[in-house]
Computed example of a mutant assay.
Amino acid sequence: MARTACIGTGNVGRAWAVVFARAGHEVVLYDQDPAQVAAALPLIKVTLQQLHSEGLLEDGVDEILSRIRGCVTLAEAVGDAHHIQESVREDVEIKRAVASAIADLAPADAVIASSTSALPGSTFLTHIAQPERALVAHPVNPPSLIPLVELCTTGITSAEVMARTKAFMESLAMKPVVLNKEIDGFLLNRLQYTLVAEALHLVGEGYCSAADIDRVMTEGLALRWLSIGPFATAHLNATQGFAGFVAQLGPMMRKMGASAKTDYDWPQSLADEIHAEMAESFPVKDIAAWQAWRDKRILAARKAQAEGKSEQPK
């Protein structure tokens, strides 16, 4: 089993530790603040207990937890690691410094992956020793519950490292997608932010409420997108498949695309109004409890997905 290192023990770093350890790997945690490492272990146990209660762990909670330990130096964390997952603060200068330190201390063949959600890897991973072994591995928070991970080259990442990391992620039961070149926001955030921008436009111009937008998603689009994506949805919505969908609805798609306001100049007052509307249903003081509720729904959705795949036509 590979020795893995999680650098940074916030929400994402802790979740990565769960992903590695439940797959049988040894995990070493490091954070520049030792108190964060100490705080991470009981929180990781809570996540493991949640997964265990849902029947999603092959091994016992204590057995998995025994594979995870903290350390006090970066050298100890990465010294003999095969895979290093960096999840420090989203600041390019901090990430550049951390990446350099990791590369100087880690084995020459260790993969160095960053969990960055927005920064192009070329801005902080290409100056290090053996930069061809570094790439972005952007998860969806929390990766302990959501399997998607976006693997993106820095422009000089070797093909061998891309393939090796993809295979490693698949061995962890993650679901990797590969970006062949850099683009801001990678794939998920570009799609997510584009949809949210148009949603702000619709609410801001008085077409509907924020709650109605959410209902359109949860009671409409999400019920199809839970099992199949937008291309497959379009393909199955037409008797002649995607070609028939485009032939019939292509002109409407182009018209709506031209009128959509993905660059809508929303004011702060609109953000404040939407916050107030959301806070009525999800009070800020109760966000932790609502996050736990959300996580249970994510796990339920994954079960539904698995059941749906087993029932697919042969």
Rank of each mutant, 00 (worst) to 15 (best):
S87H: 08
K261P: 06
E182L: 05
A35I: 10
M253L: 15
W16A: 04
N237I: 07
A197F: 04
E198W: 05
A173L: 14
M169P: 04
A306H: 12
R294D: 13
I183A: 13
V61T: 01
A292H: 13
V196M: 10
A103L: 02
A271D: 03
R22E: 05
M278A: 12
E307D: 15
S53H: 10
V216Y: 07
I7N: 04
H235K: 12
G8N: 01
A15P: 03
I102P: 01
L56Y: 03
P131M: 01
T47N: 12
V88E: 01
Y193I: 07
G121N: 09
A113K: 00
Q49L: 10
L195K: 01
K303R: 13
T153S: 11
A210L: 08
R96G: 00
L179F: 13
S209P: 05
T9Y: 04
Q268T: 13
A81I: 03
L57W: 08
V19T: 08
A5N: 07
Q291A: 10
R254Y: 11
Q312P: 07
V177T: 11
G185K: 00
L249D: 02
A81K: 00
I112A: 08
R3Y: 09
A260G: 13
R69K: 15
K309V: 07
A134Q: 03
Y207G: 03
R302D: 08
S281H: 14
Q268R: 14
A106K: 03
K45H: 11
Q240Y: 11
Y30M: 00
D31H: 05
F186N: 06
M174H: 09
V19S: 06
A232W: 05
G8L: 06
G250E: 11
F231M: 12
W266S: 10
A21N: 09
A77C: 15
V37F: 01
A167P: 09
I213F: 06
T165R: 07
G79C: 11
M162P: 03
E277C: 01
I274F: 05
A247I: 12
F282Q: 01
L187C: 04
A276S: 15
D59S: 11
E132G: 10
P230V: 02
L105E: 08
L65G: 07
A210T: 00
W290V: 10
A23G: 01
R294L: 12
K175Q: 14
K314I: 06
I68N: 05
